[in-house]
């Protein structure tokens, strides 16, 4: 199992590579007025608009630093009415982690406000926690970002 590692502050998190379509450098985003602050905007991919959310804003309340290591990860999002593309802005996304399913275990902590945080794994750099793409968007934001294409 291959995971893309990134950081939120000093902590490491992992994204399953099977959910990832492409890792891209940061580009200019079209802002979305009225959306929550952590919805960073829209960008165009293969002729279709893709909504982008900022995980730093979502987790910490501050936008991600504008660095070369800050990257835009294009993932499959299993929304109602079929899979869609979703862009995630993450910091320090420069490494992979190769692991097996047995390395991961439940964190044992209920986090109702952050349902996207999944299993954890021990690593020489510290604990690494999985981020579940399917739980990232609350229903309202999902309706906001993908509601327009359902009908």
């Amino acid at each position: 199992m291959l995971s893309l590692l990134f950081r939120i502050e000093p902590d490491h998190y992992a994204l399953d590579s099977r959910e990832i379509v492409e890792v891209r450098p940061l580009c200019r985003l079209k802002q979305l007025p009225g959306a929550p602050a952590w919805v960073a905007g829209l960008f165009e991919h293969a002729g279709a608009p893709v909504p982008v959310i900022d995980l730093c804003t979502l987790a910490l309340g501050r936008p991600a630093h504008d660095r070369l290591s800050t990257r835009l990860v294009l993932v499959h999002y299993p929304a109602t009415g079929g899979p869609h593309l979703l862009g995630l802005i993450v910091e320090k996304a420069t490494e992979f982690l190769r692991s097996v399913a047995g390395d991961w275990c439940d964190s044992g902590v209920a986090t109702p406000d952050t349902p996207y945080l999944g299993q954890v794994m021990h690593h020489e750099r510290g604990l690494i926690q999985q981020v579940r793409v399917s739980e990232l968007l609350p229903a309202s934001v999902q309706a906001l970002l993908y509601g327009g294409t359902d009908g």
Partner: peptide, 10 residues
């Protein structure tokens, strides 16, 4: 190059 390697790995 890093980016390229990441995508290649994926």
């Amino acid at each position: 190059t890093n980016l390229l390697s990441l995508n290649a790995a994926i």
